[in-house]
Simulated scan of single mutants.
Amino acid sequence: TDKGVPAALVMATTRSILRTAAERLVSPGAVLEQANNNLCPDIPPNMFVTCLYALLEPSTGKVIFANAGHNLPYQRTRAGVVELRARGMPLGLMPEMPYEEKEAYLSPGDQIILYSDGLIEAHNPSGEMFSFPRLRDILGRPACANEMIPCMLSELADFTGSDWEQEDDVTFVSLARDPEPTPDIPGPGQTPEPAEPSAWVSLGERQLGSFSIASQPGNERQAMDQVSEAVAQLNLPAPLLERLKTAVAEATMNAMEHGNHYQSDLPVEIEVILTENAPGKTAPDESRAGPSRQLVVRIRDYGGSQIIPQSEAPDLDAKLAGLQSPRGWGLFLIKNMVDELQVTSDETHHTVELILHLEREA
């Protein structure tokens, strides 16, 4: 938005518009689209606003984001530094512009770095810019992992020198997920407490896919196809795959219709996970052929304030009399397509878990 009083007024207006849109809409892309449409008629000529809008789910580390022409965030992972890309025009340039929505996951120990262009456009005495490659290189240094902001400010000061006249604001935000806790190690002379024997020992879980779809009629087929693609590596038997696809389509349709009421700005979020458990000391002998595997498909909507009915065997007379919910019929069908069906709710979401018990690997 440039600098000075006009820019400050535009920024104050934009902030108010964004807050209003965020109170009514959930999807980051929809929030930016609404904000852009509201800002375009009144923004002064030759001015625009760059903006990154993101939602964080702290319990899982899931981040949903959309970007209106702002600097690309970086995610620092164990494997390296990656850019988080989502396409979108700056706010205030053209009305009715779409904003791509993407997802990322913060694993324990990961960080997401947000920054203003005053950082990467800072110059040293020779006229060289700090630059994106330099920023990315610093983010990847192990020595900076636990002190990212002090480390970055120190690098900036060394680069620009003591006589640097700051040209623009330098804003830097680090969002980090705590690493996994280190197990307690007994001190000298201490004996560790014996662990409770377990029938099964978790070998962990692996995410096969994660995506969201707009709540629009017919998009259950998109969900079905994407889940099918995510599990292709498992080589499921054809009848089992068809049962899973039917359950996914029905659960997604329920989520779009009864959870999100076909509001296109409310996405249905789908996650596909493979879990493995090894037989423990107390597992029965017949379980020792190999790891137990489960395929879990989580389907989440934004109807958390509503009560989900129990799955019921369809009774047309009861439905016509208003005594049965069609969503209960859908759950009945789903329950007969999978090995387990779990339904949970909180203030915001409904989550349906479709669980298949896969054959053990010898």
Results as ranks from 00 to 15, higher is better:
100 E>M: 02
325 S>H: 13
258 H>L: 01
199 A>K: 11
176 A>C: 02
208 L>C: 10
225 D>I: 12
264 S>W: 07
187 G>A: 13
68 A>C: 05
161 G>K: 06
36 N>T: 07
141 R>M: 10
161 G>S: 08
29 G>E: 04
284 P>V: 01
244 L>C: 09
126 S>P: 04
222 Q>M: 11
156 L>A: 06
334 I>R: 07
333 L>H: 07
56 L>D: 09
97 M>F: 04
294 Q>F: 11
44 P>F: 09
88 G>I: 11
306 Q>R: 15
228 S>P: 09
19 R>C: 04
310 Q>T: 09
303 G>A: 05
277 N>K: 07
339 D>S: 06
278 A>N: 05
36 N>L: 03
73 P>V: 13
277 N>G: 05
50 T>R: 03
272 V>P: 09
193 E>K: 09
1 T>I: 01
254 N>S: 14
213 I>R: 04
99 Y>P: 09
122 A>I: 13
95 P>F: 04
263 Q>I: 06
218 G>P: 01
303 G>R: 01
194 P>D: 08
102 K>A: 07
358 L>Y: 02
20 T>I: 06
73 P>W: 02
130 F>W: 12
118 G>M: 04
177 R>Q: 09
343 V>N: 04
129 M>K: 08
135 L>V: 05
296 V>L: 11
171 T>D: 06
264 S>D: 08
37 N>W: 01
201 V>A: 11
181 P>F: 05
253 M>P: 10
240 L>I: 12
125 P>G: 04
